[in-house]
Amino acid sequence: MEEARRRIQGGSGVSAVAGVAAEKKDPRARRITALLVAPGIIWMVLFLVVPMLMMVYVSFWTQKTFTIEPTLTLNSWIAFFSSETYFGALLRTIRIWLIVLAATFFLGYPTALFIGLFIKNKTIQTIVLVLCVVPFWTSFLIRVLAWRPMLGKEGAVNIVLQKIGLISQPIEVLLFTEFSVVIGMTQIYVVFMVGPIAFMLSRIDPSLIEAARDLGASTWRIFRTIIFPLSLPGVVVGAIFVSVMVLGEFATSAALSGRKVNLLGNIIVTQVGSLKWAFAAVVGVMLTAVMAIVVAALLRLADLRKEL
């Protein structure tokens, strides 16, 4: 760094000396910065990084019936990959994640478009956003459970469809299937997609769109070349939120699948319930790996620090 900087300064005498001075200037301000960031760093290292490392470490421990011992072994890992159930859960998790991600994006984008671009009155904009957030003050577990009487065989959806004569027999596959899990997750998480996108859209300078229209660009073309690219960082943030939450999910699938749809999260919960910590740790590491790949891929699409 320092070397490069000096080269840029092109060797002017004064500047080179000053460059050195700049490096060690203002020790007081640096001490204050250090004091300010230290508590946060310590907290995150102790309560996030160390636990995650511990999880990786424990995944190599030996699992006894009700205990784990710190004798290193690959047994838990072998068990994971050789079991159809567990590997299947990995694939199912990825599948459901992709479906929910797509669903939240396609359902959420038009709403974000309306809130961010079409509502010019800041007060109304805030009111609509707050309307979207209010459900979060009711436990999401209760909200998830409400889908049962909606989707069940004698649920609201079937009753309505039968009343209007669209179907004669109730549809049974609505509840306790992957479908109900996807519906439940989409409903809970779609707001996390809408929020960031609406935020980015509301920052677009209207004169930009005006100018494009004056140049004769069609609505679709304006959307494709101006609006969508500028909203992309919001899409990325939203996608990260949704991905993180869906990949680690277990409550929705537990509530709406009748224990038929097992995700990686569900396996972790079951394993911990039967004190199989080492095995739970293996699944945890797998989940972390999937997460890391997904987030890294999404971050390639936009530099989030710049967007703040």
């Binding site: 900087r5 840029i8 300064q9 002017s12 004064v14 500047s15 000396v17 000053a18 460059g19 700049a22």
Partner: peptide
């Protein structure tokens, strides 16, 4: 002398 990002703002 004062530099900003290697740019000279005040030069002696």
């Amino acid at each position: 002398t004062k530099l900003y990002d290697g740019e000279v703002a005040l030069d002696g």
